[in-house]
């Protein structure tokens, strides 16, 4: 589904990704954890073309990003930490915008599809609201539905709950959990360790621009081999 080989990315002098390689199979849910500044978000953003990689090979469903980036990116949807909903459009307007404009599907069909997605994220009653009238958790659920409206094969979540009040985190995680059960391929950058442990098929632990561990959650959370991972988990868990 995704194949990354030896990816490097620098911002000026600062190397953020230092030789990243991994593969993701169809239907896998991958959590990406690690200290801040380790390159987690940059990796995710590079996959969908928000950052241009300096070198390396990236294939999305066998399509080379180097050769036909746009086509490759269309297979993916992304959810941001800051939601990035379109404030001038209603919830329904946010959901149908890209299907109408990019895919050119009929308005009635787009609305029907959007209504089904809103039902799925539990926000059917909010379809005529504007983003400013929603809570953070509701905004993020709309953002997830908006990404799903383009029917991506792969969903990328960039710290989807990091800007939410603690009591709103659960509702968003529940939606993502449901998606995992539907076997949508997902990569999730998160600081929610409990969630990462329950939901993921594999966990990438990143540090200094590298994936230093790529393994099943039990191995990381129950029995971490490396001292760096142990230290990180101790720190994070003591914060919670």
């Amino acid at each position: 589904m995704i194949k990354a080989k030896d990816i490097y990315k620098s911002f000026g002098e600062l190397e953020v990704l230092s030789g990243i390689s991994f593969e993701v199979e169809q239907g896998e849910a991958i959590s990406i954890i690690g200290p801040s500044g380790s390159g987690k978000s940059t990796l995710l953003r590079s996959l969908i073309g928000l950052e241009e990689i300096n070198s390396g090979e990236l294939y999305i469903e066998g399509i080379s990003v180097r050769e036909s980036g746009k086509k490759a990116y269309q297979k993916m949807g992304m959810v941001f930490q800051g939601f990035n909903l379109f404030p001038h459009k209603t919830v329904m307007g946010n959901l149908i915008e890209a299907p109408l404009v990019v895919k050119g599907i009929k308005k009635s069909a787009a609305k029907e599809n959007a209504a089904a997605l809103l039902k799925k994220v539990g926000l059917s009653d909010k379809k005529d609201s504007y983003p400013a009238q929603l809570s953070g958790g509701q905004k993020q659920r709309v953002a997830i539905a908006r990404a799903l409206a383009m029917e991506p094969d792969i969903m990328l979540f960039d710290e989807p709950t990091s800007s939410l009040d603690p009591e709103l985190v659960g509702e968003v995680l529940t939606v993502i959990r449901d998606l995992a059960e539907e076997n949508i391929t997902m990569l999730i950058v998160t600081h929610e360790m409990g969630f990462a442990r329950d939901v993921s098929d594999r966990v990438f632990f990143m540090d200094h621009g590298q994936i230093i561990s790529d393994t099943v959650p039990e191995k990381i959370f129950v029995n971490p081999e490396s001292e760096r991972i142990q230290n990180f988990l101790t720190k994070i868990l003591s914060q919670n």
Binding site: I48, G49, L50, K70, Y73, Q74, M76, G77, M78, F80, G82, N84, L85, F86, P87, H88, E97, A98, V101, V102, K103, R146, A147, M150
Partner: peptide, 29 residues
Amino acid sequence: NEGQYEAAKVLGMNYRQTMSRIIIPQTVK
């Protein structure tokens, strides 16, 4: 906000669509 361009981009919108449907309408206000 830069996030508006990014959201439009990951949804597959091109520059013209992004400006005319997302950015400029918000600018008007």
